[in-house]
Design a protein around this nucleic acid. Structure first.
Lengths: 148, 148
DNA sequence: AAAATACTTTACGTTTACGTAAACTTTATC
DNA sequence: GATAAAGTTTACGTAAACGTAAAGTATTTT
C-alpha cells in the first residue's frame, strides 16, 4: 500500500524534508486541516497532497497566502454556484499568465547562462593554452634545469 | 538613442515599476553601484541591466542574497584565475539544475490546472443545462404568467 | 516503574525586503 | 527670491515564514 490513510506530523515532515514547525505553521495559517486524536494531529492523504502543493508553490515563488487562496477557492468551487466557477476560471487564467511570465524568465536566464558559460570556457582555454606553452618552453630549454 | 549613459533614481524606479526605496535598498545590499554627483546617485546602464536581473531573479524566486552572489562571482570571474572560472561553471551548473526543477514544477502545475479548468467547465455546463431546461419549461407552460 | 521518545502549546526571536515618516539639502520653476 | 520638486540620510515599523527555547503531556520501550 503506497497510500496510507493517515500520517503523523513527523512522517510528513520527514517525507518532504521540512520541520514539524513548518507543518504546524501551515496548519495555523489554514493550509492544512488535520484531525485530532486527543491533542495529537492526524493528517489525511488530502493533507499530504496539499503539503506537496504548498512546497511546489514555494519553489515557484508563491506565498503561503496565495496558495491558501487557491485552496480555499477550489474547495468552494467544487460545490459552487456559477459565480464561484467563473471566479475560479478567471483565477486559473491569471495563474497561467504568471506561469508564462516565469517560463519566459527562465528561458531568458538559460540563454544568458549559455553565453556566460561559453565565456568561462573560452577564458579557461586561454589559460590552459598559456600553461602548455610554458611546459613546451621548459622542454625545449632544459638547460634551465641544468643551471640549478 | 535608446541606451542613455546614465539614469536618475526615479527614472529607473519608473521604468521598472519599483519604488526608489527599493532601488536604494538594492544599493545598500551591494547589488547596485551608482556613482555620485554631489550626494545624488547616478546610475549607469550596467546598473540598469542589473536592476532588470534583480527583478527577474525575484520573479524566479531568487533572494537578493543569491542574486548578489551571482553578481559578485561574475565580476570576479571576468578577470579570474582557473579556480574562479571553475567555481563559476559549477555555480552555473547548479543554477541550471534549479531551473530544471522549476520547469518541472511549472509543467506539473499546468497539467493540474488543465484538469481543474476542465472540471470547472463541466460544472458550468451542468448549471447552464439546468437553466435551459427551466426556460423551456416556462415557454411550454405560459399559463404561469397568465395566473399572475 | 523509569526513561526515552514523540507530541503538544505558548511565546519570544530572526531574517528578508522593503514601507513609512521625519528632517534636511539640492535643483528646477515661477 | 520664494516655492515646489526631487533627492538625501536616519531610523523605526511591518509582514512573511519560520527558528528556537521552555515547559508540559502522552506513549512506547526497556
Amino acid at each position: 500500500m503506497d497510500i496510507k490513510k493517515t500520517y503523523s506530523i513527523s512522517e510528513l515532515a520527514k517525507e518532504f524534508d521540512v520541520t514539524t514547525r513548518s507543518v504546524r505553521f501551515y496548519e495555523d495559517q489554514g493550509l492544512l486541516h488535520p484531525t485530532r486524536r486527543g491533542q495529537t494531529r492526524i493528517f489525511s492523504s488530502k493533507d499530504r497532497v496539499r503539503l506537496k502543493l504548498i512546497l511546489r508553490g514555494k519553489r515557484m515563488g508563491f506565498s503561503l497566502a496565495e496558495t491558501k487562496e487557491l485552496f480555499d477557492l477550489w474547495d468552494e468551487t467544487l460545490s459552487g454556484n456559477e459565480k464561484q466557477l467563473l471566479l475560479m476560471l478567471d483565477t486559473l487564467a491569471n495563474k497561467r499568465a504568471q506561469l508564462e511570465q516565469q517560463k519566459n524568465d527562465i528561458a531568458q536566464a538559460e540563454m544568458e547562462m549559455d553565453t556566460a558559460e561559453a565565456r568561462c570556457r573560452e577564458a579557461l582555454a586561454e589559460l590552459q593554452k598559456k600553461k602548455r606553452q610554458q611546459t613546451k618552453a621548459k622542454q625545449e630549454e632544459p638547460e634551465s634545469i641544468e643551471q640549478k
